[in-house]
Design a protein around this nucleic acid. Structure first.
Lengths: 179, 179
DNA sequence: CTTCTTAGATGACGACAATCATGATACGAT
DNA sequence: ATCGTATCATGATTGTCGTCATCTAAGAAG
């Protein structure tokens, strides 16, 4: 069963996309190679024709998940809108298509070097774009806002009580703009 | 090999302590029952005499890890000191004895109900103690500070670049006290 | 059109982990 | 002191996962 070079690239793209979604939804450890391949519409056997290992896939999928979406590549960032979307219930409830920093943050710290490097580069890119939108281009302020966003989303997702979860998001929303 | 009732309780305590440390260091999924038992000085077989399942262990270990340490149980909380310790390099570098909210946050969201409940209760307890220390007892302010602390620690641990990691901690430190 | 190459399907393999069964041994109650 | 019982050690069991070998069929090159 051979496929077009075009189809090959498309398959690789689908694998990365499925992996990015599944990793964010279930974490690195809980996702299996076979599961990713099935989600991409393939069987597990062809996996090692695309990636060297699960770790390799994790690093590349994370890099892609953290890369800015094409439509917002060069757009002027709107900080208030970004914060509102980030701290929305919709974002909290759909980790698979949301921010990978929050979805994989505490797990990323324990991953092998390539994964952590992808995480770091994604964070720097996000930071740079937030910094552009900050009054005065204050990098430290952008960092602390990003920390607040990530922390609030992590806690809002982990908590078992919907009211408390909403409260966490609302509290973080109210604070942004102060520093 | 039977053991004193006293020794039995002591063994259980050691298992919970080892589990709390290992889970924070390596995450829920990456820790095995046998590993926990070995760290507690026992073999894997006796585990199910103490806990019903690994999930049961996770919930109880998390609850204990999030419970306030005995020495700070009723102490008057010093917010500035707490924040400084939380955002210190020492805390970042020793997750096994640090805050479980940051160490397990993004993974906790995907755990079964008992684990999430323990997480929620631990967060509420921590929140209440921070609220006491806040000017005006502002619960929303306490929530947003806690979010900022957790987010900064998560990112500082995940990042591959030591300078950036320090920068994240420093930026978060500078912001606290503003809202 | 023929031949070479290669992507993917099938399936196997080895490692490992959660859980449970069994047995020995020493505590605790009588 | 003795006996029942509970705790831990040993080991089996079952399932799963990452990885690799092999086979096939179909694109690509000439």
């Amino acid at each position: 069963m051979r496929v077009t070079r075009e189809q090959f690239r498309e398959n690789r793209r689908r694998i990365l996309e499925a992996a990015g979604r599944l990793f964010r939804e279930k974490g690195f450890a809980a996702v299996t190679v076979a599961e990713v391949m099935e989600a991409a519409g393939l069987t597990h056997g062809g996996f090692y024709g695309h990636f060297a290992s699960k770790e390799d896939l994790a690093a590349q999928a994370l890099a892609q998940a953290l890369a800015p979406a094409p439509q917002e590549a060069g757009a002027a960032p709107d900080l208030a809108g970004f914060v509102a979307a980030y701290l929305s219930a919709a974002h909290r409830d759909r980790p698979g298509s949301g921010c990978a920093l929050a979805a994989l943050g505490s797990e990323a710290a324990r991953q092998p070097a390539p994964v952590r490097r992808a995480f770091t580069e994604g964070l720097e890119a996000r930071l740079a774009r937030m910094q552009e939108a900050m009054p005065g281009g204050d990098r430290a302020a952008a960092l602390s806002v990003l920390s607040g966003l990530v922390g609030a989303l992590v806690l809002a997702r982990a908590v078992d009580d919907p009211a408390l979860s909403d409260e966490i998001l609302a509290a973080a929303r109210d604070v942004v703009g102060c520093p």
